[in-house]
Amino acid sequence: MPPTGDPLARRYRRLLLAYPRAYRRERGEELLGLLLDGAPAGQTRPSLRETADLIRGGLRCRLGRPASSTVGVWAVLTALICGLFTAALASRVAWETSRPQPDRAEFTAAFAEAFPRHRLGDDVSTARALFVIYGQPLSRESLHSLLLGDGGEYQEGVAAGSAVGPMPTAEAETLATARQRLRNAGWQVYEPTSEVLQTCADPRCDPASQPVETVLVARRGDTVLRATFDDPRTFGSYLGVELQRAAPPAVLPAAVLAGLVGGALAWLVFAWASRRTEDRRRAPVLLGLTLFFWWAPVLLATASLAGHHLDEPHPSWHPLWEWLGQPTLSLFFLVGLAGALILLVTALTPRRDARPLTVSLG
């Protein structure tokens, strides 16, 4: 046995922690002896190549299934999606550090600041929570809607209102005045965007007669203002305004840290389950279905939101869980979760045989 006081032996032992405990118990001393015998005289620490080889070999050994050429890919996909789910959960918790959504007084002051000559209607609505579903805070009664069909209604709360009466100035002048006043008040004003709304499907309709929607977005501190100019003949009001909070600073670091920890833990659990289910032929099929139900919403939502973000300015990005298709497609997540639980239960059941672990150092 190598002397415990040898610094090279201690460092090799630390690197061997990359291997599963059963492998270290069975082959650890033998492997350590081989490494020490092959080390040049006077060497006190492993080379970079040895370090990389030992870590790579240990991680591959943890995955088991030595005949599989794709188990590493499945492990990465599992760790990545679990890390994203963990990051999304942590970001939602970090949202609780935000100030409450704007109240009526704050909304009225912001409206008057940007549109002083326009009359605000009495139907100003305010949010009862940071995030609401159908305008109400999340509750036990709304969980069914959240998880089974109407998850897309779970959104950031907003304070909203609209101008009433005739427009005192032309839209172009109103927009230019609002941009200047907001800049003077310390708002960061983004370039307005316009979109022609197809309200007539008949090919004979004159495109010039279609209503145009123009959106102005600005941000000051943790508050985002969104003003929408519409055709009053179509929408009843020529101007609608929304005010809401941007993501608080704690969201990003919380999501990154939780994502890294969650991904690492998921990789370790995957490796353990992979070794425990080497003799279960249905395990790869069940894993493939689980990952399909978890990844499909991510791909769909990311493709949709990426285009949406490119089309108009976003001083505060959509929450991370929306990029993962949640809770809009939460039924997919729940089916995948059921598959993952079945896999874990399968891994917990005793194996038919206990084959020794083998690995090559490359």
Score class of each variant (00 low, 15 high):
residue 1 M to L: 14
residue 2 P to V: 13
residue 3 P to V: 12
residue 3 P to T: 14
residue 5 G to F: 15
residue 8 L to H: 02
residue 12 Y to C: 11
residue 13 R to C: 11
residue 18 A to I: 05
residue 23 Y to D: 09
residue 29 E to W: 08
residue 43 Q to Y: 02
residue 50 E to D: 14
residue 52 A to D: 09
residue 53 D to K: 08
residue 56 R to H: 12
residue 57 G to I: 03
residue 58 G to Q: 12
residue 65 R to C: 14
residue 67 A to W: 11
residue 70 T to G: 12
residue 76 V to I: 13
residue 76 V to K: 07
residue 79 A to H: 04
residue 83 G to W: 02
residue 89 L to H: 14
residue 91 S to P: 12
residue 96 E to G: 06
residue 101 Q to N: 14
residue 105 A to G: 02
residue 106 E to G: 03
residue 112 A to G: 13
residue 116 P to T: 02
residue 118 H to C: 01
residue 118 H to I: 04
residue 120 L to K: 01
residue 123 D to M: 02
residue 133 I to H: 05
residue 134 Y to V: 07
residue 136 Q to C: 05
residue 151 G to H: 07
residue 164 V to H: 06
residue 165 G to M: 07
residue 165 G to W: 06
residue 184 N to V: 12
residue 190 Y to F: 15
residue 191 E to M: 12
residue 196 V to A: 07
residue 199 T to N: 10
residue 209 S to Y: 00
residue 213 E to W: 13
residue 221 G to L: 06
residue 222 D to K: 01
residue 223 T to G: 01
residue 229 F to G: 06
residue 230 D to M: 09
residue 235 F to W: 08
residue 241 V to E: 01
residue 241 V to D: 02
residue 242 E to K: 10
residue 250 A to F: 03
residue 253 P to A: 04
residue 254 A to N: 03
residue 261 V to L: 03
residue 284 P to K: 01
residue 287 L to E: 02
residue 291 L to M: 05
residue 302 T to E: 14
residue 308 H to E: 14
residue 310 L to S: 06
residue 311 D to G: 12
residue 312 E to H: 12
residue 316 S to I: 11
residue 319 P to C: 13
residue 323 W to D: 11
residue 337 L to I: 09
residue 338 A to Q: 10
residue 341 L to I: 14
residue 341 L to V: 15
